[in-house]
Design a protein around this nucleic acid. Sequence first.
DNA 1: CGGCAATGTTTACAGCCGTAGTCGTCAAGA
DNA 2: TCTTGACGACTACGGCTGTAAACATTGCCG
Lengths: 129, 129
Amino acid sequence: MNTPEEPVHERITEAELAVMDVLWERPRRTAAEVCDEVCTARGWSLATVKTLLSRLVQKGALAAEPDGRRYLYSPLIERAAYVGGESRRLVDRLFGGSAASLVAHLAETEALTEDDLAEIEALLKELRP
Amino acid sequence: MNTPEEPVHERITEAELAVMDVLWERPRRTAAEVCDEVCTARGWSLATVKTLLSRLVQKGALAAEPDGRRYLYSPLIERAAYVGGESRRLVDRLFGGSAASLVAHLAETEALTEDDLAEIEALLKELRP
DNA sequence: CGGCAATGTTTACAGCCGTAGTCGTCAAGA
DNA sequence: TCTTGACGACTACGGCTGTAAACATTGCCG
């Protein structure tokens, strides 16, 4: 079990993630609409967003559905899948593949608030009655 | 609390991490000794290790202590600090800063084995009696 | 109908990353 | 002492990233 399971899409970079995030929140948006969401926050120009969109399409992470002379962009991968892959990468690289070690580390370094701990506890109760 | 706390050292890359790992395991080693540990595993030449060591020194992640004609390299940052920073970055980028969300995700996607869950439960019991 | 505004495509370019070769030096062995 | 091997420093170089300008096209407004 636990096949390595290489993802089909190429690696999504930090800047590209910002774009993916707005499309995960609501798909089928144009370049200009995506820019409306992120350009001011990141200090980007529309050109930058266009580049990122193109690269994401090339990487197989976005679909570009023609709509007149423009495109509506939508994610081809689910956010959960991406997040899962990244989490796994981190766990593998830094915690020898043990997710429990990650949780332990978070707990030890007090990256977990009291609320976090309570929430996790609740989760556990649900997962193993 | 919870100051953003920018780390002093520059970002450590994947390849560099392999080098850091052997020096975290045992500090004060020469380039050749580091190479002995990683070159075959990663298919690197000694030259590559030398480059990575230099870059890590420049980045402030390693100290190079002169020892005759060569250097003995040692980490300037603790592994726990690095690991903590990376974990935080992931949690911030992908889980809106909520570590509990990360744990929830791991649980939902079954990235956590039964053993993991048991271990985490034990941890929790210890942390909040 | 003609020019403008919007939109994707192409090109750019500096900086980082992975990977390594070359050069100059110096210590130790012959 | 002369040579050779070990070392760090410098150089290289293609690919990826972040950031964007220039260009081409084309629908729309006047």
